[in-house]
Simulated scan of single mutants.
Amino acid sequence: MIRGVRGATTVTQNDENEIVNSTEELIMELIEQNAIEAANVASVFISVTADINAEFPAKALRRFSSWKYVPVMCMKEINVKGSLPLCIRVMIHVNTDKAQQDIIHIYLKDAVTLRPDLIKE
């Protein structure tokens, strides 16, 4: 079964290093918390708000050699008035036997406000 594992984080500014490092931190946490192996990943979608364009956040995944063949796509989040600025969202599509309620979604930094109902203590 393919499940979506999602997460989000924020950056303080539109800076190449911060974008890549924050994305790497988020993805590493998603991988660790959900025991994700690259061979089981169908694809990864990464979206950013309109105020992020200094670098592709997908560059963070290229730091993991075992993820070399995982398809990754970056896209712009729709620009909704009042939405969280400087936000990076990730959706990993992974083959897993886990039940939907057993997936651990990760929200870091200011992104914790997006889905407080999914934050696990």
Rank of each mutant, 00 (worst) to 15 (best):
G82R: 11
N79S: 13
S83Y: 04
I88E: 00
I92F: 00
M73P: 03
I104H: 13
S66A: 14
I92G: 01
H105N: 10
I104M: 13
Q33M: 06
S47H: 09
I104D: 07
E37V: 05
I36Q: 03
V80T: 15
I46T: 08
I103H: 00
K76W: 12
T96Y: 01
A50P: 09
A60T: 05
K81E: 15
V72Q: 06
A58P: 00
S83H: 09
I78T: 12
R63G: 06
E29P: 04
N79T: 15
D102K: 08
D110Y: 10
M28E: 15
V80K: 05
N53Y: 08
C87V: 08
T49L: 04
R63D: 09
E55G: 03
V112A: 01
I106C: 04
A39K: 12
H93P: 02
S65Q: 15
N40S: 10
K59V: 04
K81G: 07
F56L: 07
R89A: 14
I36W: 02
E77A: 11
E77D: 10
Q100T: 10
V44I: 13
V41E: 02
I78P: 07
H105T: 07
A58D: 10
M73S: 13
A50H: 14
S83L: 11
E29D: 13
K81H: 14
I88C: 01
D51R: 03
Y69D: 11
A35R: 09
R63F: 10
V48T: 08
S66D: 13
C87A: 10
C87K: 06
R62P: 03
M91I: 13
I103N: 06
T113C: 08
M75C: 07
P85H: 04
I27N: 02
I103P: 01
V94A: 12
S47G: 12
D110W: 07
S43V: 06
K81D: 13
M91G: 12
R89C: 07
V72D: 01
Q33H: 11
S83D: 13
V70M: 04
A58R: 05
Y69A: 10
T49H: 00
R63N: 08
L30M: 09
I103M: 04
T113W: 07
G82T: 07
Q100V: 15
L86C: 05
I27E: 06
V94Y: 04
E55F: 06
Q33F: 03
I106D: 00
H105Y: 09
I52R: 02
T49K: 00
L84A: 05
A99L: 13
V44G: 03
M75V: 08
K98R: 11
E32A: 10
L61K: 05
V80C: 08
F45N: 03
E77P: 02
P85L: 08
L108S: 06
V41A: 14
Q101I: 13
V94P: 03
C74N: 12
D97F: 11
I103T: 01
P57Y: 07
K59W: 06
A42I: 15
W67G: 01
I46K: 01
R63I: 02
A60M: 08
N95C: 09
F56M: 11
I106F: 02
K81P: 09
L30N: 01
V44E: 03
I27A: 01
K81Y: 14
D102P: 01
